Computed example of a mutant assay.
Amino acid sequence: MNWLLVVAGAVVGAPLRFLTDRFVQSRHDALFPWGTFTVNVVGSLVLGLLTGAASVGAASSHLQLLIGTGLCGALTTYSTFSYETLRLAADHARGSAAANVVATVPAGLAAAFAGVAAGRALWG
């Protein structure tokens, strides 16, 4: 049963990631991977909200599997973040590669912390 929840979340998360990435990236001419940045930060916020809710007993383990592991796991993408950073560096866009790391990691962490605080405040 648990694996079905993960699969159901991923069925939504994977296409949402693809569509969001394409939508966001199509609106920017820059080399910077804004689409991947967006899905990673939004996914970190959603996972933070869920974690905050779970910490006060407002999110069941089933919801954590569905949203946390399934949806957020398929929505966010560390591998694409890494690949795009390496590709930027290989294409001699080292400033963009560095900006990707310097922006993505703190923004994702800040979104997760904000999500936890919001989740606790909303459901605590």
Rank of each mutant, 00 (worst) to 15 (best):
Q25C: 00
V102C: 10
N40Q: 01
A90N: 13
L71C: 04
A110H: 04
F23G: 00
S44G: 14
F37R: 10
A111T: 10
L109A: 11
R17E: 11
A112K: 03
R120T: 12
F23E: 12
A99V: 08
A103P: 00
Y78Q: 03
D91L: 08
T38K: 03
F23T: 12
V24G: 00
V56P: 03
G68T: 03
L66P: 01
T69N: 08
W34N: 09
T51G: 08
N100H: 11
R87Y: 10
G95I: 10
P33Y: 05
A107V: 04
L75D: 05
G124V: 06
R17G: 10
V11N: 02
G119L: 08
R87I: 00
G68I: 04
S61P: 07
V56A: 05
V105L: 15
T85G: 00
G95F: 13
T69R: 03
S55M: 14
Q25F: 00
P33C: 10
V12H: 05
L4W: 14
L4Y: 13
L63D: 00
L75R: 01
V41G: 06
A14E: 02
F113K: 09
L122Q: 02
H92V: 01
A8Y: 11
G108L: 05
A58V: 11
A90M: 08
Y83M: 14
F18M: 11
L50F: 05
A90Q: 14
H28C: 10
S44I: 09
V39T: 07
L122S: 10
A99F: 11
L75S: 04
G115Y: 10
T51K: 01
T20Q: 10
A90K: 14
L45Q: 07
L75G: 03
T76A: 11
A98Y: 08
G43H: 07
L16F: 15
A10G: 15
V102P: 04
A54M: 06
L47S: 06
G48P: 12
T77D: 00
V102H: 09
L71Y: 13
L122F: 12
P15T: 06
R17I: 12
L88D: 04
M1V: 14
G35T: 12
A112E: 00
W3K: 12
A90E: 14
V101R: 00
S61C: 00
A107K: 07
I67Y: 01
C72L: 02
V24A: 05
A74L: 05
L63S: 08
W123M: 12
A98K: 07
T36C: 05
A98V: 15
R120H: 11
L109V: 15
F37D: 06
T77A: 04
T104V: 02
A14D: 01
Y83E: 08
A103K: 03
R22W: 06
